[in-house]
Design a binder for these strands. Structure first.
Lengths: 142, 142
DNA sequence: AATTCTTTACGAAACCATTCGTAACCCAAA
DNA sequence: TTTGGGTTACGAATGGTTTCGTAAAGAATT
């Protein structure tokens, strides 16, 4: 099992995942209240979505008590990674460089944030292993 | 008219847009041949997609001659920007920093690319003083 | 106990993306 | 003129996402 069959959340599902990531394991009621702060959404709609996400393996749930408690099945970073890969393939021809340039270039970014990115770049320099080629495009591992 | 009603291409539509961005204005036949290099797709499927994209305003077409010629209605960068905004909102709570960290962190990136990003960061430092708003980033109200 | 509130489960409707079959049309070649 | 290949237009089937109405069951309140 690699990243092959990692679930690909839809937009609504992501909305819910963000609530779970931010607040931790939550009931349908809580998630729905959070979503309702941003837009109109019925309780059973949120319920159904969570049930489907559960079937898909996107969330796990504790149904030991009557009101079930849902939590993300994947780490935030993992899911975000999948989504970036998706966008990278779909719109940037696989070039992470172009994506980052676009993300930074067309946007206001504070100096503090720029510095944080610089730190990240520096730490990546340290990890550079010159032995290996740079296979940005072939996660073919079987 | 701001970025409000900029079209939001689907995955298939992006596949086609990439062909158009890369090769310039093209006929259905050409686009379909390109897509066929990667996967199985019927001619009329590509045709229909292009027709729908035309209706949506995602592509423009020259139908002065019998075989129509399609071209992107938006610049590559513009569309990519919209898509990043979308992902940013949907999965990263709006934090471009987190997105970039994720894009770079979970991925092998060559030193050359890292250097290019550093250059970008440096040039952004220069622009830090927003007397002159960046020409790319503010298509405000007309 | 009866009522009300909360929750889950289920089914269906509405909508959209994707795919393709079929027909009509034009043009060029036979 | 007829045939055939390439093209556009259109409609429909399929499958997935999103929404919500309704029913059933449990829990709390009266």
């Amino acid at each position: 099992m690699g990243k092959n069959n990692v679930p690909r959340p839809t937009e609504s599902e992501l909305e819910i995942l963000q609530v779970l990531w931010q607040h931790g394991p939550s009931t349908v009621r809580f998630v729905n209240d959070e979503l309702s702060k941003r837009r109109d959404v019925g309780y059973t709609t949120t319920l159904k979505l969570l049930q489907l996400m559960h079937e898909k393996g996107i969330v796990a749930r504790d149904d030991s008590s009557r009101t079930h408690v849902y939590r993300p099945a994947l780490r935030e970073q993992e899911t975000q990674g999948v989504l970036i890969d998706r966008l990278l393939e779909a719109a940037f021809g696989g070039s992470a460089l172009k994506l980052v340039q676009q993300a930074l270039g067309n946007r206001k970014t504070s100096r503090a944030e720029l510095d944080q990115i610089r730190d990240l770049l520096d730490s990546m320099d340290d990890q550079q292993d010159p032995d290996q080629p740079s296979p940005t495009a072939t996660p073919d591992t079987k």
